[in-house]
Nucleic acid binder design. Structure first.
Length: 421
RNA sequence: GGAGAAGUGGCUGAGUGGCUGAAAGCGGCACCCUGCUAAGGUGUUAUGUGGAGUAAUCUGCAUCCAGGGUUCGAAUCCCUGCUUCUCCGCCA
């Protein structure tokens, strides 16, 4: 969430940045709550100080054998008033926190301004869109023909938008996961994490999924547990309420997990194939950094994701998300888009975001600075490195041969144990 | 799942109703001393949130797992929850 002090001291600036996302956003109501809240706290604190003094007096009087009935009654009445003020204060605290939880992050000053994805500038292109003299089948046909993915079984066992991988399909999916993890741990220096895929509402609130995006997630009926929509949630929250020391930063973490999304509101979108499933695999990259390190580490994390696509020799481009398209918690974000013949276009395969201290405030992620010994919020950064199902689809489509085979990218062959599928 | 015990500052650990935001030790930091090394001395060392001040800083309140309760007053008493440990049961 945003820093209330920044909001208080610089409301015009905050409003201006928020309106770059959406002109309806405003923190004006929060300022009103904040002023009331501080007034009440001031009154309550003064009264509590008074009660403390009087109570100590009673202790002394009792020691001296004096009668304290009158003063006790007086302090009791004070207690009633304090309780009243405390309740009011708690209510205002809560109101303010709730309001803040629904305000998105302020975009970075240099995030391009625009209202939707049509304003996202392309900042980098690698390779050429795949062109072949023969027809490239969409992966949803090819994979079914080759008995690699069984969409019907997925639907039968669970629900629409669930798939079952089998045979070489399961092998390819598993190989991609292993390849991703190995590059990020061996080459890029990330620590591998295998986290729980169910997390509680505190974790979901920390990274910004709750409370606003509740309908996007699968929730357990009788427990305060949600299926994670991304490994970002458990991994970013690992150090919540647990200050790090500055030498531990930047902290680089990577995790493979299945991800679960309700895709509420996506009815009719990407209904064929592996592109938009309720369950999909992803390897995530997460960084916790100092504010000074953040921008550079964000670029480096994006490079780590880009490198995967280059190693696989998949054509892709990078777009920078504009203020109207950027995620709720992010300040700045690059999307990596892979060439997907079935779409005759580029399709998102990774989203690399810098969150500033927005998530850190929500999750209470802090570190102790070396220069002044003070506690400070870390900056969080994350990105897909990469989405596995979409990589699977991109490989199937971009690398198919005329006789219906799929060429396994060189770097994957040691995992699949074969050159073609 | 059943029974019992326990949760205090970065760590160990004292503290059963008031002068304890919290002893002591360790660790950390600063300075001093010692011609190396090791040791020693002095001081300092929690977080959150208000108020005053340009600021350095001063100051109120809250916080001893969490939330309630009792009391003039709670780390200390009571209730609930969570977590950890031990024993039993079950189990991949």
């Amino acid at each position: 969430m945003l820093d209330i002090k920044v909001i208080r001291e610089n409301p015009e600036k905050v409003n201006e940045l928020l309106k770059r996302r959406n002109k309806d956003l405003s923190i004006d109501n929060i300022l009103v709550i904040d002023a009331q809240r501080r007034q009440i706290q001031f009154e309550a604190d003064e009264l509590k100080a008074k009660r403390k003094n009087e109570s100590q007096k009673i202790g002394l009087m009792k020691k001296n054998g004096e009668n304290t009935d009158a003063i006790q009654e007086e302090v009791r009445a004070m207690g009633d008033k304090i309780k009243e003020l405390e309740e009011k204060q708690a209510q205002l605290d809560n109101e303010q926190r709730q309001a803040l939880l629904y305000i998105p992050n302020t975009p970075s000053e240099d995030t391009p301004i625009g209202s939707d994805d049509t304003s996202n500038p392309v900042v980098y292109v690698w390779g050429e869109p795949t062109k072949k003299p023969y027809e490239l089948k969409p992966h949803w046909d090819l994979c079914v023909e080759k008995n690699m993915v069984d969409f019907e079984k997925g639907v039968k066992l669970a629900h629409t938008r669930f798939a079952l991988y089998r045979n070489k399909g399961a092998l390819l999916e598993r190989s991609i996961i292993n390849f991703f993890l190995e590059v990020h741990t061996q080459k890029h220096g990330y620590e591998e994490i295998l986290p729980p895929v169910l997390v509680n509402s505190a974790a979901m609130t920390g990274t910004g999924q709750l409370p606003k995006f509740k309908e996007d997630m699968f929730k357990c009926v009788d427990e305060d547990l949600y299926l994670i929509p991304t490994a970002e949630v458990p991994v970013t929250n690992m150090y919540a309420d647990e200050p790090l020391s500055e030498d531990e930063l930047p902290k680089l973490l990577t995790a493979y997990t299945p991800c679960f999304r309700r895709e509420a509101g996506s009815a009719g979108k990407d209904t064929r194939g592996l592109i938009r499933q309720h369950q999909f695999n992803k390897v995530e990259l997460v960084k916790l950094t100092t504010p000074e390190q953040a921008r550079e580490e964000h670029l480096k994390l994006t490079d780590d994701a880009k490198e995967i696509l280059e190693l696989l020799e998949l054509p892709y481009r990078v777009v920078e998300l504009c203020t109207g398209d950027i995620g709720f918690s992010a300040k700045k974000c690059f999307d990596l888009e892979v060439w997907m013949p079935s779409y005759n276009g580029y399709k998102e395969i990774s989203s690399c975001s810098w969150f500033g201290d927005y998530q850190a405030r929500r999750a209470n992620l802090k570190y102790r600075r070396k220069d002044n010994g003070k506690m400070e919020f870390v900056h969080t950064i994350n990105g897909s490195g990469l989405a596995v199902g979409r990589t699977f689809a991109a490989i199937c489509e971009n690398f198919q041969t005329e006789d219906g085979k799929i060429l396994v990218p060189k770097v994957l062959q040691k995992y699949t144990g074969c050159e073609t599928i």
